[in-house]
Design a binder for these strands. Structure first.
Lengths: 245, 245
DNA sequence: CCAAAAGTGTTCAGCCTACACCCATGT
DNA sequence: ACATGGGTGTAGGCTGAACACTTTTGG
């Protein structure tokens, strides 16, 4: 293995581009957009920074990639360290690299987004007192390019919602049709027709209706459903849903 | 601006994660998946490496991010340096970070993909004699995780093709319906019905039929079309196409 | 006159959309 | 008895999919 430690002139352009230049090493950060659903609204988790730069401002949670882990692992570690959460759906979103995005130092940041059910994870371990859930439309101004990250995360989430029922991650195990519809309305940011929605969901044939009712919201009570994980996964592989709403 | 140069113990977990640790800096590479269309088939451009590691094997073109540029710029620079091409559609795809993906050194790679019309860019400047176009299905085994990158690029391209007519980038200025259909068939990897395809394209109302014919392929000749850039851009903003095929 | 590609419409089925009334229950 | 949310079905329009024959002209 030959790794030139310094650039040298060469006519071999092919090689030229591949020099290992110590000075071109950078810090790689991971920032997490954490979407939560509380049975009514979609929210994101933000923290108030208690360190420089931008101390006191709101931001996404984040950390740096370590030498001995990959990005997925770093994202999981960051999420876990700051919130105590583990075993959470996470997906890489996009890599942000504007030269001056962090005024303090050259940092490239890989954004991830996570989906969780707010109530099931009572933050046994919310490690940060300065963390708070915000409704999507009332999120504050964030540091650096974090607002841009959130915008992109929302549009990715919207696309995901059309391709597959996201519910697994964002809903409690048992949930009502109304809650599922609330979730979709939050994600897509529009009202949906109750009957059409239910028909659509039922036609996908991935839910199981229980004999149990949720009596907390209405007098009449609403039937609870669970995902049929097996049917769901099979369906994802075969057709991959389409799901126009 | 305070940037601790070394980690120190602290109870403030919020800060702990954000230490600037020199040792955790990494090299950031950019790899480009270059799709080309030659009026009949979709291809990708690969080079034979003439440097270690993996000298002699086929790979994507790539290079390292420099301190004073962002990733988009690095991708453009890499593409331009190696092929002479400029002013090309490029889009960030995904960031690959397996710890041992490059056995030589810890490298994280951001994959980009580019779309070009093979014939319009006769590689005035193909700087690399060892570069070659491959049909999608006959691409060789590549180094590292480059095959995985290509798979992801193809599926992204397929999704793009459904959201908007990709044609601008991959076709010459004037093209026939058959060529456009060939393009879509290559991307989606399936045969399409001629009449349905034409009806669909026409209903989008973004093409202009010229009085000119391409006589090179058939006795009868086929009408040439150009994109109506204005209508196209307007449409992308308003509806954003949908485009089921 | 034949080979090769271009061009052109219609029918059917499935899916999305819009829409309104009764039900069950706790207070 | 009433207020609140839960639950249910149908008709019309649009869009995607399947499908075959005629036209043109160089050789």
């Amino acid at each position: 293995m030959e790794i030139p430690k310094e650039a040298k002139l060469t006519k071999d352009i092919n090689t030229q581009l591949n020099f290992y230049q110590k000075e071109d090493q950078v810090l790689l950060a991971v920032d997490c957009i954490i979407f939560g659903f509380d049975k009514t609204n979609l929210k994101i988790l933000l923290i108030k920074r208690n360190f420089e730069p931008e101390k006191g401002k709101w931001s996404l949670i984040g950390g740096f990639l370590k030498k001995n882990e990959n990005l997925d692992q770093a994202a999981i570690r960051v999420l876990n360290t700051l919130t105590g959460l583990s075993d959470i759906y996470m997906e890489q979103l996009y890599t942000y690299s504007k030269v001056d995005r962090d005024p303090g130092q050259r940092t490239i940041s890989v954004a991830y987004f996570a989906l969780i059910d707010v109530d099931s994870h009572q933050f046994d371990g919310i490690q940060i007192d300065s963390a708070r859930w915000f409704d999507l439309d009332e999120a504050p101004e964030l540091i650096f390019d974090h607002n841009e990250m959130i915008r992109k995360a929302i549009s990715r989430l919207q696309r995901r919602a059309m391709t597959m029922p996201i519910g697994f991650e964002l809903l409690p195990e048992k949930f009502t049709m109304r809650q599922l519809q609330n979730l979709y309305e939050s994600i897509l940011d529009k009202k949906l027709d109750k009957r059409n929605f239910i028909n659509k969901i039922n036609s996908l044939d991935v839910l199981v209706k229980l004999d149990e009712k949720d009596m907390t919201v209405s007098r009449k009570g609403a039937y609870l459903y669970v995902f049929d994980k097996e049917k769901y996964e099979k369906k994802v592989e075969e057709d991959g849903f389409s799901f126009k709403l």
